[in-house]
Amino acid sequence: DLLAHTCESLAQASVMASDFADYLEGPHRHKAMAIQQIVMLAELAANRMLDNVAIPKP
């Protein structure tokens, strides 16, 4: 459950950073987009971990 919540939180953070970058220009926009990409990469890594987790059967 914790890993699934982490994936969802990272996805939301990625969207928020992207939306925030839309209001910026120049170097500030580039920094915000770099943050968004880092968060997106973390989200991809967390999703990959989630795919590899063996869920115990009841």
Rank of each mutant, 00 (worst) to 15 (best):
A42M: 10
L44T: 01
S18T: 15
M40K: 10
Y23T: 09
E43C: 11
A21H: 07
N47W: 12
L41C: 15
M40L: 11
L44M: 04
F20S: 07
I35R: 00
N52H: 11
N52R: 13
V53K: 04
M49N: 04
L10K: 02
A4C: 02
A13T: 05
L24K: 08
E8Q: 15
K31F: 03
L2S: 09
G26W: 01
M49P: 01
S14F: 04
H5Q: 15
Q37T: 09
Q12D: 05
K57V: 14
E43H: 12
I35L: 14
D1E: 08
P56D: 07
L41P: 03
N47R: 15
T6L: 13
A21C: 10
T6D: 09
Q12P: 02
Q36A: 13
A42W: 04
L44W: 02
L50W: 03
A32C: 07
M33K: 06
A17E: 04
A32V: 03
A45D: 14
N47D: 08
L24M: 08
M16Q: 07
R48Y: 15
V39P: 00
Q37D: 13
R29D: 03
A32D: 04
H5N: 13
A54C: 11
N47Q: 11
S9N: 15
P27C: 14
V39S: 00
K57G: 05
A54K: 14
Y23P: 01
L24C: 12
D1I: 08
I38D: 00
A13N: 01
V53T: 07
R29S: 04
Q37E: 11
S18Y: 07
A46E: 08
L50R: 10
A21Q: 12
V15M: 09
K31H: 06
D19Y: 04
D51P: 10
A21F: 04
A42R: 03
L24R: 09
A11R: 10
H28G: 05
S14R: 03
L50H: 11
A17T: 05
M40R: 09
D1Y: 12
T6E: 14
F20H: 14
M16S: 09
M33D: 09
A11Y: 03
D51I: 11
A54S: 13
P27M: 15
L3I: 02
D22F: 00
C7G: 13
L2F: 10
Q37I: 04
D19W: 06
A34S: 13
L2P: 08
V53P: 07
Q36M: 02
N52P: 13
L2T: 12
A46W: 07
S14A: 06
A21Y: 02
L41R: 10
